[in-house]
Computed example of a mutant assay.
Amino acid sequence: MSLFGTIMDKIFHHPAAAATAPAATAPAASASASSPVKAGAIPSAPASAAPVDVEAVLTAMAATHGGGGNWQTSIVDLLKLLELDSSLDARKGLANELKVHVGADGTADENIALHKAVMIKLAENGGKVPDSMK
Rank of each mutant, 00 (worst) to 15 (best):
M1T: 06
L3M: 11
T6L: 06
I11E: 08
H14A: 08
P15K: 14
A18R: 12
T20D: 14
T20G: 14
A23W: 00
A24L: 08
T25A: 02
A26L: 12
A28E: 01
A28M: 00
A31Y: 00
S32P: 01
S35K: 15
G40M: 08
G40P: 04
A41G: 02
A41D: 13
S44I: 05
A45H: 09
A45T: 08
A45Y: 05
S48G: 14
A50R: 00
A50C: 06
V52Q: 11
A56I: 08
T59S: 15
M61E: 04
A62M: 10
T64Q: 15
G66E: 03
G67W: 14
N70H: 14
W71P: 04
W71T: 07
Q72I: 04
T73P: 00
S74M: 13
S74P: 03
V76Y: 13
D77Q: 05
L78C: 05
L79Y: 12
L81T: 09
L84V: 04
S87R: 13
S87D: 07
D89W: 12
V102R: 14
G103H: 07
A104S: 12
A104Q: 11
D105W: 12
D105V: 00
D105H: 06
A108E: 15
D109M: 10
I112Q: 11
H115E: 09
K116N: 10
A117C: 08
M119Y: 09
M119L: 08
I120H: 06
K121D: 10
A123F: 01
E124K: 14
N125G: 03
G127C: 06
G127N: 09
K128I: 01
P130N: 13
S132H: 09
S132F: 03
M133E: 00
